[in-house]
Design a protein around this nucleic acid. Structure first.
Lengths: 74, 74
DNA sequence: TATTTTTTATTGTTTTGCAATAATTTTTAT
DNA sequence: ATAAAAATTATTGCAAAACAATAAAAAATA
């Protein structure tokens, strides 16, 4: 089982560009990109809340629990 | 704005005791308690997913975005 | 084909998740 | 009440990793 980062979806829905979100959150474009592509193993609540604020969404819109202990694990 | 950990609610709903959840997730009772009481600044997806698995819920059931930049910030 | 945006890559700093342990407090059961 | 179980609080420590800073390549948009 895994947590999938669906930030890309919300960015599309809100039509916000990563660049702007990164600027608002106060993290680099590079790190936001890593977060978007699920190459991060966790997140600080401060970062998460800022993203929620800018995208006007909830944590559940950004993170998804994917059951099943087989595919793409690790 | 802040992220509120509502793990206590889900534990109550599922009638699961912290002890058991901690055992399943593989973290100490102490740390789970800290997480429950919102004394943690972030979470690893691996931990989050295991909690979701055991409680059969989604990240959105455990984390809540609380707008408003005033109270208990800091 | 410029220009902007995004991604990938590296190195380094610093925060902090979580372990381990133990003691105290609260809850549940006898 | 009181023993037992569960939960909280407190400390210390370490390894993991979030994130910064920077740069360059790739992709998208104008």
């Amino acid at each position: 089982m895994t947590i999938e980062v669906t930030l890309d979806v919300m960015l599309a829905v809100r039509k916000v560009k990563s660049k702007d979100l990164a600027a608002h959150v106060g993290i680099t474009d590079a790190n936001l990109s890593l977060l978007k592509s699920g190459k991060v193993k966790g997140i600080r609540f401060e970062t998460l809340s800022k993203i929620c604020e800018y995208l006007d969404c909830s944590p559940g819109d950004l993170l998804r629990y994917v059951p099943g202990n087989s595919a793409d694990e690790k």
